[in-house]
Design a protein around this nucleic acid. Sequence first.
RNA 1: GCGCCUGUAGCUCAACUGGAUAGAGCAUCUGCCUUCUAAGCAGAGGGUUGCGCGUUCGAGUCGCGCCAGGCGCACCA
Length: 538
Amino acid sequence: MKIDVKEKIKSSIEEFLKEYKKNVQFDILPTEKEEFGDFYSNIALRLSDKDNPPNLIAEKIKEKISPLLSGIIKKIEIKNGFINFFIDENIYKEHLLKILKNGKGYLEENIGNGKKVLIEFVSANPTGPLTIAHGRQAAYGEALSRILKFAGYNVTKEYYINDAGRQMELLGESLKARYYQLKGMNYDIPEDGYHGEYLIDIAKEIKEIRDDKKFFIEFAKSKILEGIKNDLEKFGVYFDNWVSESWFIEKGNVENILNFLKEKNLLYEKDGSLWFKSSLFGDDKDRVVVKKDGFYTYLATDIAYHKYKIERGYEILINIVGPDHHGYIPRLKSAVSSLGFNIENFIVLIVQLTTIYRGKEKISMSTRKGQFITLRQLIDEIGADASKFFFIFRKIDSHLDFDIEIAKKQSSENPVYYLQYAYVRMKHLIEYGKEKGYDLEKIKPSLDLLEKNEELDLIKKLWRFNDVIKSVVNTYGVHLLCEYLLDISKIFHSYYQKYRIVGEKQELTYARLALIKSLLTVFELSLFLLNISLPERM
RNA sequence: GCGCCUGUAGCUCAACUGGAUAGAGCAUCUGCCUUCUAAGCAGAGGGUUGCGCGUUCGAGUCGCGCCAGGCGCACCA
């Protein structure tokens, strides 16, 4: 674990506050501009008033804390009321050496403290192939899981299969219609059924039929699920568990949970249906759990599922859903809350939609009408890595415009290649160095020789890695890690172009290779976390 | 009508908890391969952060009101 400079600055300022008996909230934040140093604090601005201008207070603080920070901070400057801290370069360089020596293990950050986290994502109905919307959720969920795991959480990835209820009936009827159509019979697909052509392909595979409803449902479901699993595998997204809605019904979990709620007096009958008092927990109105026809609603089975999550001891539940589910969230939160789970640890992340364009043509999507670009088509057209990166390097609240034509045409200018190219160059440099007899294991590099701007920038970037991971964990903003890597890549490519790494001066070469090796460690790790593959050459 | 998300350069998007002169990429224009990979680099232009009030030392960020786009408002999932 690296030295927590931010914490040291903070506690030194708190010393000052104690002495002057002041109490005020303040921040220590990383700066965005080099001239402002590495961290800045707004403490003086917070303390200032008419009689005490911020710069004056800042001077007092500086005087008090300077001795407390010697060896860590080499310079403190005051500007516009801000106090700017410049970290001693030795701190950075020691960090680099540790990475060099211990590899990615040194970068590990134990934020999660082994807490059990369940991440449920994709969870698409087995009524059709995965779409691009699922692709974005899958790419994001996988990356987030990997990062949380790295940050010390005990993460389980789960896919919930909605294989019960009316949608499955419609699926079965739709397949049945396609089957008889293939036999030359005049048989209509239900109007609100599934009209996609994929059911024709599935119908063709039917060898022998047993003419009952269940057969068609089961056949369609198993074929579609198989397809979903294949697509996810091709995309590089893996689940630890697959659980199914019908399983909860068969095992009696749903009945049990309803009894449980009944005992707590949270259910009542009205208009021939059974209602859950979700309005007691913040929902707009109560919701039906057992319909007039005697079947469970989706909510009923979902409560049973969430009970199952809690029973297995998960302390944090993360659900990644599409925006079409947002109206559903309050009732689910009500349900989880009624089960006695701390609602603050139930995190629902909404991944906004991706709008697909082919050039200027906007492709509107509907699973039922059968008009959509599947995830599989996307992977086949532009590749898994490029697709995944496109999906995760924007924050999930943004509506994503994804022009397939551009992604294809400009594939060589896709940012993912920029990263991968940086990685390949780094890797090659290390190999080339080895060929020339440079063995980093044997020597302690003299990092003081690294004095070019690019070198110092890169060293600082290495030091920021843990801050980025913390930010991702705090905000669920996976894209921050992408931005970070793009930042490094930019400096690195520039550096590479400007200076020779493996050159004539031996000591300098060792120092530079040490920097490259550490960068490589961060890249390997980060690209793994983002679930982007590491090419050998490009 | 109500709820959620979004509105930032020509286009696609960043900006961590409210911080200093709002940043990248693409596209456009000008240069750079006899060298560790040119899928690269250097340079240039491009902004009233949708509009209006407010909160405060300070607002792209917070509050209120408009405008525009997306999604959702089921005894579907």
